[in-house]
């Protein structure tokens, strides 16, 4: 594949992300990279390899596992750990498991809170991480347009929209007090299309679920939910149907909507995106919990 190396716009985004990651490593005593297995995480991992080359990335990966991911995602996670040689920490909220929390009986809001938000706090506290790199982008959702690149969290991991520091030039104020931590978003200025273009340019491996293939799905509240394993509770009358689908965003399978598509390769996905009429988040069930719901989740400590 021909690689272009002028100071093009992906090069500029790449350089900015590398700068941010190096600031984190230079300024914090125990950073970690949140690894969600999705395409943004794949890009983050590649950027980290570039930022610290020839040294390996000087932080571990942390996957907060809700136990409801697609089987392909778990396979891909293990493969990434193997191929990068990075330490992979997997954290599961065992309390939540003991209480049997799941998206079917408890709904997406409670499931996400217990298995994702609470679990993340547990993991950060347990290991004493003072900075967590994550792949959120400003184009994902309206309220994120205002998120800082370095986002301060209180001791209880809360995000206070009134207490965020102005970010001028490239001067990120990384100072925190005991117990506080920083969430850092190196992909802030990337768009979904940039992410795919970069994956294409760099040949970055991603979970096969992003590519269209025949999969068993059921239609639910305007989207297609895949019957990924035997735990899927079917409603009366629901009959899984094989459809050629792919996912634009991956999370817990009962909460990730698929779209019908023929795009079986990265270029085909980019093509489809250029003519797309729906945003990436449309497939996320949790964004529809009510107006400003993402905003609320963020204040509670969810990304």
């Amino acid at each position: 594949m021909a690689k272009h190396h002028g100071p093009g716009h992906l090069d500029q985004l790449e350089a900015e992300s590398i700068y941010i990651m190096r600031e984190v490593v230079a300024a914090f005593s125990k950073p970690v990279m949140l690894y969600s297995i999705g395409k943004d995480s794949s890009v983050l991992v590649r950027l980290a390899q570039k930022a610290f080359h020839p040294a390996p990335p000087p932080f571990p990966l942390l996957h907060v596992d809700t136990t409801w991911k697609f089987p392909e995602m778990y396979e891909f996670r293990e493969r990434t750990a193997r191929e990068t040689g990075m330490e992979l920490i997997v954290h599961i909220n065992q309390e939540g498991v003991a209480r049997g929390i799941n998206p079917f009986t408890h709904g997406s809001a409670l499931h996400t809170d217990v298995m994702k938000t609470q679990a993340l706090k547990q993991a950060l506290d347990k290991h004493g991480f003072d900075a967590a790199l994550a792949g959120a982008r400003r184009d994902e959702e309206m309220s994120r347009a205002k998120e800082r690149v370095f986002s301060l969290r209180s001791q209880s991991h809360r995000w206070d929209p009134k207490n965020q520091r102005p970010e001028l030039w490239r001067l990120y104020n990384t100072r925190i007090r005991q117990g506080e931590s920083m969430r850092v978003f190196p992909l802030s200025n990337w768009t979904e299309l940039d992410v795919w273009n970069y994956i294409d340019r760099e040949n970055i491996p991603v979970v096969p679920l992003y590519f269209a293939a025949p999969r068993p799905v059921v239609p639910r509240s305007g989207t297609l939910i895949m019957v990924a394993d035997e735990r899927m509770k079917l409603e009366p009358g629901e009959e899984p149907e094989m459809k050629k689908v792919r996912f634009r965003t991956l999370g817990c399978y009962p909460l990730s909507g698929a779209i019908e598509s023929d795009a079986g390769s990265v270029p085909a996905i980019i093509r489809e995106m250029l003519t797309a009429t729906h945003s990436e988040r449309q497939g996320r069930v949790i964004d529809h919990d009510g107006e400003g719901s993402m905003e609320r989740k963020k204040q509670e400590g969810y990304f």
């Binding site: 002028g6 093009g8 716009h9 992906l10 985004l13 273009n197 340019r201 270029p267 980019i270 093509r271």
Partner: peptide
Amino acid sequence: DREFRAYVNAREDRDI
């Protein structure tokens, strides 16, 4: 593929 690569290259030549 040719058309697609042309698009990608054009995209890459742009600055921010």
